[in-house]
Amino acid sequence: MKVTADQDRCVGSGQCVLAAVDVFDQRDEDGVVVVLNPNPPAEVAADVRHAAATCPALAITVEE
């Protein structure tokens, strides 16, 4: 699994962090998504997929 985030599309809602805290964070200055682990382990795959699905800006891409 490979995870990327389009920081230009991100609206800073934080849904990704709530879904997968070990994979996503937000910049302090503006709340834009930061991918902490672009190749997360299989045990958090469902959480990462949920983060991508609930992102209101559709800024997260997951490649299997």
Rank of each mutant, 00 (worst) to 15 (best):
A51M: 03
D30L: 13
A20N: 00
S13T: 13
L36G: 05
V17R: 04
P41Q: 03
C55L: 11
C55G: 05
I60N: 03
D6H: 11
A57L: 10
V48Q: 02
T54E: 14
A19G: 03
D47C: 04
L36W: 07
P38E: 06
C55H: 02
V34C: 02
D6W: 07
V33L: 07
Q15Y: 10
A20V: 00
Q26H: 10
V35M: 04
L58D: 15
K2T: 15
P38Y: 07
Q26I: 08
N37D: 15
E29H: 14
G14E: 05
V17C: 04
I60T: 01
V35T: 06
V33T: 13
A59T: 05
A51R: 01
Q15H: 14
C10L: 09
A53H: 09
D28N: 13
V3I: 07
R27P: 01
A5W: 03
D30W: 15
G14S: 09
V17K: 03
E43W: 09
T61M: 12
A57R: 07
E63Q: 14
V11F: 11
C10Y: 05
A45R: 06
F24H: 01
C55Y: 02
R9Q: 15
D22N: 11
T61I: 05
D30E: 11
V23N: 02
D25I: 09
G12S: 08
A46G: 06
D22L: 10
A52K: 05
R9V: 11
A59K: 05
T4I: 09
C55S: 07
S13L: 09
R27D: 05
R49F: 02
D22Q: 14
E43Y: 11
D25R: 11
T4G: 08
V11M: 14
D47M: 07
K2Y: 03
D8L: 14
D28R: 14
G12T: 09
V33D: 00
S13K: 10
E43S: 08
D6V: 10
V21A: 13
R27C: 08
S13D: 14
P41R: 07
L18D: 12
T54M: 14
A51K: 02
A57S: 15
D30N: 15
C55P: 02
A42W: 04
E63R: 14
A45P: 00
V3A: 05
P56I: 12
H50G: 01
L18S: 11
C16V: 00
L18R: 12
T61V: 11
Q26V: 10
Q7S: 15
E29S: 14
V35Y: 04
D22M: 09
V44Q: 00
T54F: 07
R9G: 04
P56D: 12
H50L: 13
F24N: 00
A19N: 04
M1Y: 01
A46N: 06
Q7G: 14
V3L: 06
P38Q: 07
V17S: 03
V32R: 06
E63V: 14
M1Q: 05
A52E: 08
E43K: 06
A20H: 02
E63F: 02
E43P: 00
V3P: 00
A19H: 03
C55E: 03
E64K: 08
V17I: 13
G12D: 04
V17H: 05
R49V: 10
R27A: 12
V62I: 05
F24P: 00
S13N: 11
D6F: 07
V44S: 00
D8Y: 11
D6T: 09
H50D: 11
Q26T: 10
L18N: 09
D8H: 13
P40N: 05
D30A: 10
D28G: 12
